[in-house]
Amino acid sequence: GKMTGIVKWFNADKGFAFITPDDGSKDVFVHFSAIQNDGYKSLDEGQKVSFTIESGAKGPAAGNVTSL
């Protein structure tokens, strides 16, 4: 299901971020390909987002990341 959280930090050079979920679970890795914005895919620290949890090769990662 959809979860919500806050972007903890975003590394534009490497194209990934971490989200701190609102439910208090541990921070979730985000690859820029999961960001659903049109055009430039970036996130801002402190931004509120919704996302799903996908199981990636290196463990859980956020999918369908959308700005709220």
Rank of each mutant, 00 (worst) to 15 (best):
G1C: 15
G1P: 09
G1V: 14
G1F: 08
G1M: 10
K2A: 10
K2M: 11
K2E: 07
K2P: 09
K2L: 13
K2N: 09
K2H: 10
K2R: 12
M3W: 05
M3H: 07
M3Y: 06
T4R: 05
T4W: 06
T4P: 01
T4Q: 07
T4V: 05
T4C: 13
T4A: 03
G5K: 00
G5H: 00
I6E: 03
I6D: 01
I6N: 03
I6P: 00
I6H: 05
I6W: 04
I6K: 06
V7P: 00
V7I: 15
V7H: 00
V7D: 00
K8W: 02
K8N: 05
K8V: 07
K8D: 01
K8C: 07
K8M: 05
W9K: 04
W9T: 03
W9D: 02
W9R: 03
W9L: 04
F10N: 02
F10T: 14
F10M: 11
F10D: 01
F10K: 07
F10P: 01
F10A: 15
N11E: 07
N11W: 08
N11G: 03
N11S: 09
N11M: 05
N11H: 06
A12K: 11
A12Y: 08
A12W: 09
A12E: 10
D13A: 09
D13I: 07
D13G: 06
D13Y: 06
D13Q: 08
D13W: 05
K14M: 12
K14E: 09
K14V: 09
K14F: 11
K14R: 07
K14Y: 13
G15H: 06
G15F: 04
G15Q: 12
G15L: 06
F16Q: 03
F16E: 05
F16W: 08
F16K: 01
A17R: 00
A17E: 00
A17D: 00
A17Y: 09
A17V: 08
F18G: 03
F18R: 11
F18Y: 12
F18W: 14
I19E: 00
I19T: 00
I19F: 01
I19M: 01
I19A: 00
I19W: 00
T20S: 13
T20G: 03
T20P: 00
T20D: 01
T20N: 03
T20H: 06
T20L: 05
T20A: 09
P21H: 01
P21W: 03
P21I: 06
P21A: 02
P21S: 02
P21Q: 02
P21F: 04
D22W: 02
D22P: 01
D23H: 03
D23Y: 03
D23N: 07
D23P: 00
D23E: 03
D23F: 03
G24M: 03
S25I: 02
K26M: 11
K26S: 10
K26Q: 12
K26L: 09
K26W: 05
K26G: 13
K26A: 13
D27G: 10
D27W: 04
D27L: 04
D27H: 04
D27K: 02
V28D: 00
V28E: 02
V28I: 14
V28F: 06
V28Q: 03
V28M: 09
F29I: 12
F29Y: 10
F29M: 14
F29L: 14
F29W: 11
V30Y: 05
V30R: 01
V30T: 01
V30Q: 00
V30L: 06
V30M: 07
H31M: 10
H31A: 12
H31Y: 11
F32I: 14
F32Q: 06
S33E: 12
S33N: 07
S33Q: 06
S33A: 08
S33C: 15
A34Q: 14
A34G: 07
A34N: 11
A34R: 08
A34F: 11
I35P: 02
I35A: 02
I35M: 07
I35E: 03
I35N: 03
Q36P: 05
Q36G: 08
Q36C: 14
Q36S: 09
N37S: 09
N37H: 09
N37C: 15
N37R: 05
D38V: 07
D38N: 12
G39L: 12
G39P: 08
G39W: 07
G39T: 06
Y40E: 13
Y40Q: 13
Y40I: 12
Y40S: 10
Y40H: 11
Y40R: 10
Y40D: 09
Y40C: 15
Y40T: 09
K41C: 15
K41I: 13
S42D: 09
S42K: 10
S42L: 11
S42G: 10
S42N: 13
S42F: 12
L43M: 08
L43N: 01
L43A: 01
L43V: 06
L43G: 01
D44P: 04
D44Q: 14
D44F: 15
D44R: 14
E45W: 12
E45A: 12
E45N: 10
E45M: 12
G46S: 02
G46N: 04
G46C: 07
Q47K: 05
Q47Y: 05
Q47C: 13
K48F: 07
K48H: 13
K48Y: 09
K48S: 07
K48L: 08
K48G: 03
V49M: 01
V49G: 00
V49Q: 00
V49K: 00
V49N: 00
V49H: 01
S50K: 07
F51Y: 13
F51R: 00
F51M: 02
T52Q: 09
T52I: 12
T52S: 09
T52L: 10
T52C: 14
T52Y: 10
I53Y: 09
I53A: 05
I53C: 14
I53K: 05
I53E: 03
I53W: 10
E54S: 08
E54H: 07
E54V: 10
E54F: 06
S55H: 14
S55D: 13
S55T: 13
S55Y: 12
S55V: 10
S55C: 15
S55W: 11
S55G: 12
S55M: 14
S55P: 11
G56S: 10
G56T: 14
G56W: 06
G56M: 08
A57N: 12
A57V: 13
A57R: 08
A57S: 11
A57Y: 06
A57H: 09
A57M: 09
A57W: 06
K58E: 14
K58Y: 11
K58H: 15
K58C: 15
K58L: 11
G59T: 09
G59I: 08
G59V: 11
G59C: 15
P60Y: 01
P60H: 09
P60A: 09
P60T: 13
P60G: 10
P60R: 09
A61G: 12
A61I: 14
A61T: 13
A61H: 11
A62Q: 12
A62N: 10
A62H: 09
A62E: 11
G63E: 09
G63C: 15
G63S: 11
N64K: 05
N64H: 09
V65R: 03
V65N: 15
V65S: 06
V65A: 05
V65I: 12
V65D: 15
T66D: 15
T66I: 15
T66Y: 00
T66E: 15
S67K: 04
S67W: 02
S67Y: 02
S67F: 03
S67Q: 13
L68E: 15
L68Y: 01
L68N: 15
